[in-house]
Every structure is written in structure tokens, then in C-alpha cells.
């Protein structure tokens, strides 16, 4: 492992003698740097999209798992009986992991965004709320509604979060598309570098002929090309990644009111993820160039 790391370090550090055997090629070099920068820029956004939709899917999934409630409306004297009946029904319902009667203070907190903190909740005929937490399997909402209607006529199952399920699925798919986009960007980078490397190898056929004549091994010749393309890709991808991160930083900040679009960015340690893009691009360039070079050199005598 240590030898491999030293080899990689030597590759990036460069060998001035070996580097110089291949003549500089301005256009191919600029093309490689520009394309890898553009790909890295796109990869930053694809990563941001994937992470943001991942967060969204997780948040919605989380809420879906524990946001069912049973609302009990009954005359004040009937309320304790109905509350007890509802809790008993929920306790014996398969798929219900937990059921808890919400306190008056919790209900006041829920209403506070609409009516303010000074709402005299004790004087109002506000229905009782039972928070229901589903198990992994979930419960049958229709069956529960029927049982509640029989045992506690004033109780209504408010299954208001079930609409989130298709949204969670959509967010999950969006996350998958983000990952696919990153994969396609990596493949496009590899394809582009393979084409550029092949062009460079073809343009330097005479140089390769001279090197073979004086006893250069394929690995020596390949290394000169591999190092060059790897370094170009690394520098281009670094520029593209930095540009992408700056662009992401200038996106509006994530907040509850803004919703999904303003949350399209990195949060916390997720800012570290894009730092993996330049080295991954360099690894892609390394293998793409190496394979192209070895394949081309094997065709020569």
C-alpha cells in the first residue's frame, strides 16, 4: 500500500526527464483542462442535487413514520372515556408501535404559529390529539378507522402524512438520478480523456517510434502520457470544483419557507464531499490514459 502511495506521489510529482520526451501539445492540453473543469463543475451540482434530495427523502420518510394522529372531538365529560377507548384501540392495533396522548402544552405549541403564544387554550373546545407511531410494517388505516368508529365515535384518524409517500419515492428517484448523473459525468470524462489521449498518441507516433528504438519500455512511454493527462485533469477538475462550490455558496440559503429549491446545496460535513471530485477525476484520467496508451503501444513493434 505504501509503495502504491509512493508511486502515486511520484506520478503526480512528475519526472522531468520522462515528461519532456513528449512534446507539449497546447490545444489538447487546454481542451483536457477545460473539459475536466466543466465536468467537475457539473459533478458538484449533481452531487449537491443528490445530497439535497437525499436529505429531503430522509426528512419526509422520518415524518411519515411518526406523524399519524387521532383527533378526538367529544363533549368535555365524555372526553376522558373516549381518550381511554382510543388509546386501548391503538394499543391492540397491529402495526402501531406507540400511541401517546398529546398534552395541552404540546397542542398550544402546535397552534402557536397561527394564533400566537397568548392563546387561552384551556377555555377553547379544542379536540384531544393522540400521536400514533407506526411500526415498520405499518397499520391498516381503513381497519383502524372502523374500529375507532365503533369504540370511540368522536375519534378521527388523521392519516395526513400518507400523501408524502409518493413524494418520498420521487425524492429517492431524484437522488438516484443525481448519482447516475455523477456516473455519466465520470464516464464522459473517461471517454473524453481516452479520445484526447488517443489523439496525442497518434500525433506522437514518431516520438514513440524513437523511444522504442532506443529501448524504452511501454510502461515508460505510457507514463509520460499518463502523468501529463492525469495532471491536466487534476488541475482542471480542481478549478471546476472550486467554481462549482462558489456557485453553490451563492445559492439562496436553505430555510423552511423556501422549501426544496433553496435547500439545494451542501450542509455541514457534506461540504467535504466535493473535495473528492478532483482526485476521482485524476484517477479516472490515470486509468483512461493508461489503457489507451497500453492498447496503442501493443499495436506497435
Amino acid at each position: 500500500m505504501k509503495a502504491r502511495l509512493l508511486g502515486a506521489a511520484a506520478l503526480l510529482a512528475g519526472d522531468s526527464k520522462a515528461d519532456r520526451v513528449v512534446p507539449p501539445s497546447g490545444f489538447t492540453a487546454r481542451l483536457t483542462v477545460f473539459t475536466s473543469a466543466a465536468m467537475a463543475f457539473l459533478a458538484v451540482f449533481a452531487l449537491a442535487l443528490s445530497l439535497a434530495t437525499g436529505r429531503l427523502a430522509d426528512r419526509w420518510s422520518d415524518q411519515l413514520a411518526r406523524s399519524s394522529t387521532v383527533r378526538i372531538s367529544a363533549p368535555e365529560d365524555q372526553m376522558p372515556i373516549q381518550e381511554a377507548a382510543v388509546l386501548e384501540v391503538l394499543r391492540t392495533t397491529p402495526g402501531v408501535a406507540d400511541a401517546r396522548l398529546m398534552s395541552r402544552a404540546e397542542q398550544a405549541a402546535l397552534l402557536e404559529p397561527w394564533f400566537g403564544p397568548d392563546l387561552p387554550i384551556e377555555t377553547l373546545p379544542i379536540p384531544s390529539l393522540v400521536e400514533v407511531i407506526e411500526s415498520e410494517a405499518g397499520f391498516d388505516p381503513d381497519g383502524l378507522r372502523l374500529r375507532l368508529a365503533a369504540e370511540a365515535p368522536g375519534a378521527v384518524l388523521d392519516d395526513h402524512t400518507r400523501w408524502r409517500r409518493p413524494l418520498v419515492e420521487a425524492a429517492g428517484r431524484l437522488r438516484a438520478f443525481g448519482l447516475i448523473a455523477i456516473g455519466l459525468i465520470a464516464l464522459s470524462t473517461a471517454a473524453m480523456i481516452t479520445l484526447a489521449a488517443n489523439a496525442a498518441l497518434a500525433a506522437n507516433a514518431r516520438v514513440i517510434g524513437v523511444l522504442r528504438l532506443v529501448g524504452a519500455q511501454d510502461s515508460y512511454i505510457a507514463r509520460a502520457f499518463v502523468r501529463r493527462f492525469t495532471n491536466r485533469t487534476l488541475s482542471g477538475a480542481t478549478v471546476g470544483t472550486v467554481a462549482g462550490l462558489i456557485a453553490i455558496m451563492f445559492l439562496p440559503a436553505a430555510d423552511e419557507q423556501g422549501g426544496f429549491l433553496t435547500g439545494l446545496g451542501f450542509q455541514g460535513w457534506h461540504w467535504l464531499w466535493p473535495l473528492a471530485i478532483p482526485p476521482l477525476a485524476a484517477i479516472t484520467a490515470f486509468w483512461a490514459t493508461r489503457l489507451a496508451a497500453i492498447r496503442t503501444l501493443r499495436g506497435l513493434t
Binding site: 520526451v21 524513437v210 532506443v214 529501448g215
Partner: peptide
Amino acid sequence: CEFLDHLPLAENLSLPLSVA
């Protein structure tokens, strides 16, 4: 005689040593 045209003569002559 084929040489690497972008390298000075001295470097061309030392090329067999470099590749070895």
C-alpha cells in the same frame, strides 16, 4: 535519423540513458 525535435541535441543523445 529520427530525433525528438523538441529536445536539444544533448538531451536526445542521453535519451537511451534516460529510458534505461
